[in-house]
Structure formats: C-alpha cells, structure tokens
C-alpha cells in the first residue's frame, strides 16, 4: 500500500466581501462566500486523484488553496505527514518546490513578454542553484520531455498553438522536480484532437517521473480513463469520494448519479456505462447562503424530509474506501426524520 502524499482534513476556505446594504447607503455588511466547506480526503503517492464538479463546486478553489495561492480559513493540509496549512518564508518556498500547478488556459498562463525558455527557467531560478549554462541545459531537457522542438525555446507564446502552450506550462511545472502536480482543467481549452495527445503525455510523464496528480475537471470521460480515485464536489463540499471503478459502477450520491447521467456520450456503447436519464430541476442556491441543510436538496430527486430538516450530512464510509455524504447512506446520528 503506497503511502499518502497528501491529506486534506476539514478544509475550509471562505471569502469575505464588504458590500453596501442598499445602493445609496453608506453602511456595509460583510458577505461570506463559502467556497470550500469541510473537505477531507487522502491522496496516495503516484496515483491520479480526480476532483470533479460543476461551476461553483469549489474545485478550483480547492486546487488553489492546496497550491497556497489562498490561505485556508480553517482545516489542515498535510504533505508527506507534515502539516503545511500555514507557511511562510523558506518553508513556503520549499513547499512550492514540491507542489506545482498547471493552469487551465494556456494562453493566459504564460507571460506574453517572455520567451518560452524564460518562462520555463523561472522555477529553476527560484529554487535551484544552477549556473546559466546548466539552467539552459535543463530547460532544453524539459522542452524535450514535453515533446516540443528545441527551436521553440526562443519563441514567444503567441507564436505557439494552444496545445504547445499547454506543454510549456507542463514543462514549467516539472522544472523544480515536484512530487505533486495540481492540474486545473488542463485540456478544457484545447481542441479534441489535441486533447488526446496531451492526456497521453501526462500519463507518460506520470509513469516516467513517478508523479502524483490531483486533476480538477468537469469532463467525466477523461476521469473515467485517467482516475484512480475520484471526489465529487457540490457547492463547496465533497459529496462522494472513492475508487474510480466504484464511483462509476455504483454511484451512491444522487448528485453523482445525475452528473453521470448527463454526460454527453458519443457512442451507443458508452450509454451502457451511465445511469439512465436524470434531468435536474430547481435552481442552485447561492454560495453566499449558509447551508443549513444539504445543499443539493433544492434539486435532488430522492430527497427525504430529513434532508431539509437537518444539517448537511457528514461523509460516511458506505463501502470499502467509498465515502458518501447523504442521508440515504448513514449519517444518521441525531437526525430528525
């Protein structure tokens, strides 16, 4: 059994905004956007852990909080057994070396005024003590690793295609030799024919370099092919997580089932692999509202009276390693029915 590289314990991230009460009033109140509430899961070394969810689910906030672009409001992030929730200075810097991020939009993720070589060299400048020559050598290696021609090193981002820019983003993330790679929708901005090659590259790199991936995406077909473990998020909470096979074959949470049934499949053969038609009605509550009960209750087709009356359900281990937060599957302590 591989060790855990990352553990997230009851992680919360709230954003506080000051807003005027009425249009012409001077008084203001603070609104709280509960982007992440009580997220807990573990990621094993060398695996691909996918976090899926739709917009507003908090998955991007999760990735950014783990990357320390946001400070957690409460809860713990533990890397290789060491708590890393609040870091500064040298400890933060060494954390950044181990945990790197690949961004969604390859055009926005590269500085348009720097050459490819300069962009890739940046992590080397920050973290490694290399001479100019050694650095150039390493950049050349990285460029080859992501299968780009060496001539591209002196080019600027606008001369590259989307797929090529994304490869540069990956090369840059790999420069400091990280252990954990956070990938925020790495193929969403790419065309379908380029996407396949990108995924192949990512798989290949993972095998070769022994990387662990935390992959954020809304594309369940990709998840089905790449994931070892999956976490499903809704309105800032993880509603279900477990082994990929288990989630797809036996989705427990009503939202997971609705999500799977909504996948726009391409071939008839795929249709066998998803639950039958579930079209969700109702509206999504706003992230500024406090969730007094299960956030999914406004749209859930299997809702019970308990779901509306009680606090959001806690995650329970319904099957081996397969956790779900739903009143249909345990979470029954002190529940009013």
């Amino acid at each position: 059994m591989k060790p855990d590289i990352l553990e997230i314990k009851r992680l919360r991230k709230y954003f506080f905004r000051k807003r005027r009460i009425a249009r012409l009033s001077f008084r203001s109140k603070i609104t709280v956007i509960r982007a992440l509430s009580e997220c807990s899961f573990k990621v094993r070394k060398g695996e691909t852990f996918c976090v899926v969810g739709e917009s507003g689910s908090g998955k991007t906030t999760l990735a950014r909080t783990i990357a320390h672009l946001y400070e957690p409001t409460s809860g713990a992030i533990i890397l290789n057994g060491e708590p890393v929730s609040h870091l500064e200075g040298e400890t933060l810097k060494s954390y950044r070396r181990k945990v790197q991020m690949v961004f969604q939009d390859p055009s926005a993720a590269l500085n348009p005024r720097q050459t490819i070589a300069q962009s890739i060299a940046l992590p080397l400048r920050v973290h490694c003590r290399l001479s100019g020559h050694e650095r150039k050598q390493r950049v050349r290696e990285l460029v080859g690793l992501v299968q780009l021609p060496v001539e591209y090193m002196q080019r600027y981002p606008h001369a590259l295609s989307g797929g090529q820019k994304q490869r540069v983003g990956i090369a840059r993330a790999l420069a400091p030799e990280p252990e954990l790679l956070l990938l925020d929708e790495p193929t969403s901005a790419l065309d379908v024919s380029v996407q396949a090659k990108m995924l192949e590259l990512l798989s290949d790199l993972q095998d070769r370099l022994g990387l662990t991936y935390l992959l954020i995406t809304h594309n369940l077909s990709i998840v089905r092919n790449l994931a070892d473990h999956i976490a499903v998020m809704y309105l800032g909470r993880i509603v279900e997580h477990g082994p990929a096979e288990g989630i797809f074959k036996n989705p427990l949470h009503p939202y997971t089932r609705a999500l799977l049934s909504a996948i726009p499949v391409i071939t008839e053969a795929e249709r066998q692999h998803i639950p039958e038609e579930i079209t969700l009605d109702g509206e999504i509550p706003s992230p500024t509202d406090v969730q007094k009960n299960c956030g999914f209750v406004t749209r859930c087709q299997d809702r019970l009276p308990a779901c509306r009356a009680n606090a959001p359900p806690e995650l329970t281990e319904a099957r081996s390693e397969h956790w779900v937060g739903c009143y249909h599957h345990g979470s029954a302590e002190g529940v009013v029915v």
Binding site: A67, L69, L92, R96, Q100, D105, A109, L122, R172
Partner: peptide, 12 residues
Amino acid sequence: EDFVMASRSIGA
C-alpha cells in the same frame, strides 16, 4: 492574470 498567479505558485 493567470501568469502572475503562476509565478506566485512557483515562488517568485
């Protein structure tokens, strides 16, 4: 911009 965030995540 994303590239500024990327630089922050790199530790620049």
